[in-house]
């Protein structure tokens, strides 16, 4: 009986905490369907008295406004996918070679890569800005993509996996006369798929959600990403127009939330694997 009461208490506690996590998100959605007048009036009504799609139609389709929201969404998704593809490809090659092949000075190389995991972004973002500025590449996709690809996190994550990869599979392929590239693409990559998905989800979320770098690297409205774009709107023409702001943040959140819910298992695996080692 006492055990039963304790269980109930824990479930109630967990539910109250769940409410704390969900209420702000539900309020965001609720506000996005209110007109500005009702939003500013305050109150606690969850169902808008005067339900309206106006905030969405305005932010998405209104002519001549300074909200190129489709462009921002495209930029974010494009930059996220391009960066992720580069990271996963390049990191897998490097990690595999460092873990399994006869790369000269591989221990030194690996230590140098790994030691940079300790270096905070604050130390490189100003020189990166100058670098892209000198090359005339601010406000380009290159500036929004490449700085993320230098991160050694993926090399570290995949290195751990390839270290434990069974020798027999490689050896069988060698006997068949396959060269290193063939072994890598036909034998190694297929078996590394789950861990590569983990890295992909991590990378996409990091790039899609990043704030400071895209804020610094872009200033033209059509090169903004969605995360920096909404920050600009909040300080610009949407200031205190919370209905529209909440429509904007809801739109910005939907794609990443879908990816998060689909890739949650991989994401958790990645966090725990790097957490333990």
């Amino acid at each position: 009986m006492k055990q039963y009461g304790k269980k109930t208490f824990l479930i109630i506690l967990a539910t109250v905490i769940a409410a704390i996590f969900l209420i702000p998100l539900l309020w965001m959605i609720s506000t996005s369907f209110k007109n500005d007048f009702e939003a500013i009036a305050g109150g606690l009504n969850w169902i808008p008295k005067d339900f309206t799609w106006e905030n969405y139609t305005y932010t998405l389709f209104s002519q001549g406004v300074d909200v190129p929201i489709f462009t921002w969404m495209f930029n974010s998704i494009f930059v996220g996918i391009a960066g992720t593809v580069i990271i996963v490809t390049v990191d897998a090659m490097a990690a595999y070679a460092l873990a399994r092949l006869d790369v000269p000075f591989k221990k030194t190389l690996f230590s140098i890569f790994i030691s940079t995991l300790m270096i905070p972004f604050v130390i490189t973002f100003l020189p990166l800005y100058m670098q892209f500025s000198n090359l005339g590449l601010l406000n380009t996709y290159a500036a929004l993509i490449f700085p993320y690809t230098a991160n050694a996190f993926g090399v570290f994550l995949l290195f751990q996996f390839f270290k434990g990869f069974p020798k027999e599979l490689e050896e069988a392929a060698v006997l068949d006369g396959a060269n290193k590239w063939k072994i890598f693409t036909r034998v190694v990559i297929p078996s590394a798929r789950p861990i590569m998905w983990t890295l992909a989800i991590f990378s996409f979320m990091q790039i899609y959600n990043d704030f400071l770098w895209p804020l610094v690297a872009t200033n033209s409205p059509e090169m903004r990403t969605i995360t920096t774009g909404i920050a600009v709107m909040q300080q610009g023409s949407f200031v205190s127009s919370y209905g529209k702001l909440m429509a904007l943040t809801t739109i910005a959140t939907v794609p990443i939330l879908i990816i998060f819910l689909i890739g949650q298992k991989q994401l958790i695996k990645g966090i725990t694997q790097t957490g333990i080692k």
């Binding site: 702000p24 506000t31 979320m205 995360t227 920050a231 702001l245 909440m246 910005a252 959140t253 990443i256």
Partner: peptide
């Protein structure tokens, strides 16, 4: 869930 959301969305949401 909130971990998946960007800092600008979080900040503007809490501002509100």
């Amino acid at each position: 869930i909130p971990y998946a959301i960007s800092v600008s969305v979080i900040s503007i949401l809490f501002l509100w």
